[in-house]
Design a protein around this nucleic acid. Structure first.
Lengths: 225, 225
DNA sequence: GAAACTTTTCAGACAAATTTCAGCTTTTCG
DNA sequence: CGAAAAGCTGAAATTTGTCTGAAAAGTTTC
């Protein structure tokens, strides 16, 4: 997961970088708005943490230009001021969330997680999560040089998990979406397929695993890169 | 941000109102306990500043009744007396913080900020209180870098406490909301889960603790920042 | 129509969540 | 003070939900 941090107080910028790094996010740090815009336009980030008051270009402007350039990377704005007008302004420019300094690092991380939750990108007819690529056309799962073919149900279950990457998919949802609304299928059916899939993930040597939330469902655990 | 001020010394009340207004807080001022209770019950405030000695209903009583009505707005108590018994009394009734007159306006503002710092707010699908973040989807509790998974009941109990983090949650409520209306579960069941949770809070090194109000219930003690 | 694959069913093993219980500490109140 | 009530907590016991191997049943492919 790559994060761009644009913050001119070097002290704070460093702290942010550290917090992120501890969470295994990969970060780039820049100290003014112009650089921020530049990096955000050139590179691929999963989120941008953007201070409002930046030299050269302020945060609002950076956000506006990014959106104008159709870059849809989620933006989290930071500001020292706790003023309503700013808040509105920030969100109007295309920021996705907003935090006032000083902030709690746990909260920052929670917000980052919330912003980056939308994943499981569909590119053409492939779904991507972590080191896995699911080809929708031929129903095969690829990791690096290896690949396996998936049965229809296997495929549908994994597709659900990958499309809702990071979110927990309830067992019930899996049943109704894969087996259909009126079906005899029971929880155990899902469990069996999860077991099949886990075996294949291990076979492929993927870093992705399938997590269980007891009494609820399953989710894809995509380790931060 | 809306603040209710209940203070009978008009002189002081006015000063308070002014201080708040300068900070762009929106304030309502009332001069006795009955009005205070009335307003606090009817309107939506982000915090209540409550003098202890008030005509008609004293501050303790107002706080108690608010909590009884399941209003969890943070309460800052003001008193001229600097007595320990009062302090205990105030916190028992459900006040969240306590200041003795005369006070410094800077300190007052700092405390208000602390009280209103998004606590128990649902953000995406996380609940935040103090240094704790509860992820509602995967049912795990996070503090800084550490996190623990919670069982279903554990999770529900903590969720209740965090969602009402300025109020005491009665044991009975916990039982009916977590175990359901018709259940054999006894007080001890709740006690056991509170014990589980306390252990996990300590494990995480959180500053948040779970407080007990004898014969009533439990509340989250979120230390002022 | 046989081989190869997919899907379903089932049962035992297993692990986690939950309950129960007993002894202990703290608080309350006469 | 001291007894009774309320609460705390560790450990054992129980229940519940999940995992997984194997076999049976059903499909597709050639």
């Amino acid at each position: 997961m790559r994060i761009l941090i644009a913050e001119d107080e070097k002290h704070l910028a460093e702290a942010l970088g550290q917090i992120m790094t501890e969470q295994r996010y990969q970060t780039d740090v820049v100290y003014d708005g112009a650089d921020g815009l530049d990096y955000a336009l050139t590179e691929q980030y999963d989120a941008v943490v953007l201070d409002v008051m930046l030299p050269k270009l302020d945060g609002f402007e950076v956000a506006r230009r990014l959106r104008a350039a159709h870059v849809s990377t989620p933006i989290l704005m930071l500001t020292a001021r706790d003023e309503v007008p700013d808040k509105i302004n920030g969100l109007d420019c295309g920021a996705d969330d907003y935090m006032t300094k000083p902030f709690d690092s746990g909260e920052l991380l929670a917000r980052i997680r919330a912003l980056t939750r939308r994943q499981g990108e569909v590119l053409g007819n492939t779904l991507i999560a972590g080191d896995l690529t699911l080809r929708l056309d031929v129903r095969c799962l690829i990791r690096g040089d290896d690949s396996v073919r998936l049965g229809f149900k296997e495929f549908e279950v994994l597709r659900l998990l990958m499309a809702n990457c990071h979110a927990v998919v309830p067992k019930e949802d899996i049943i109704t979406k894969v087996w259909g609304l009126e079906t005899e299928a029971e929880d155990n059916n899902v469990e069996v397929y999860i077991s099949f899939l886990r075996k294949k993930l291990i076979f492929l040597g993927s870093t992705v695993t399938i997590g269980t939330v007891r009494k609820v469902g399953y989710f894809l655990e995509v380790p931060p890169v």
